[in-house]
Design a protein around this nucleic acid. Structure first.
Lengths: 98, 98
DNA sequence: TCCCATAGTTCGGAATATCGGAACTATTGA
DNA sequence: TCAATAGTTCCGATATTCCGAACTATGGGA
């Protein structure tokens, strides 16, 4: 869980949106067919890649539950290690979107 | 000045170190020959590129003074727009280095 | 004025990363 | 065992990164 990987992961607006969604909803994200993030259609192979990047950055944890994968935010763990980092980043994106 | 560009710029530890150095010293950075950032030697073409990325992200401002270029941190302007962002990022790197 | 030295940028090619369609694997239910 | 759904891996096209070499810009002499 290094800053480099976290920043790289969240420097992509699509991944930031995915992470926001995972953090907000507590979990889940279907890769099947085409998923929609924000208002953009993402092919499942790309989504799978994005989720891998988020996982390897330590931002989310993935568990297989039967046929589907559940993605959980590791927000609190990251925040414990790097206080305020995630809030500042997601806050910055939110400011732009507003 | 978008979060995407800022995060991308600072997701490179070398650029984060350059930015920290510029923020700390107020300015300056010689591209001539080979510069040293942290304890790593950086060819001047790479350094020039890094500085361009920082500039285009809105993190620094560059002024030519005679033959040399002076780089100033735009930290306070960025902080006004995205409160806490830079502090959180540089803080995260500092935690790792410590 | 002309040339040199120094600071920095741009070019170009090799290495590397990204995106997304197609094929593949994994799991469950019938 | 087969079908359906969820997700991963492969691979080719495209874009990015890195860095040496060539180039540009500025100032200071002779």
């Amino acid at each position: 869980m290094r800053p480099k990987a976290i920043l790289h992961a969240l420097s992509d607006p699509v991944r930031a949106a995915i992470f926001t969604q995972i953090s907000g909803q507590g979990c889940v994200e279907a890769c099947s067919d085409v998923a929609v993030v924000g208002d953009k259609a993402i092919p499942k192979s790309s989504l799978s890649h994005h989720i891998k990047v988020l996982r390897e950055a330590g931002l989310i944890r993935c568990e297989r539950h039967g046929v589907e994968m559940r993605n959980h935010s590791r927000c609190s763990e990251v925040d414990q290690r790097f206080p305020g980092l995630i809030a500042a980043i997601l806050g910055a994106y939110a400011l732009v979107r507003a």
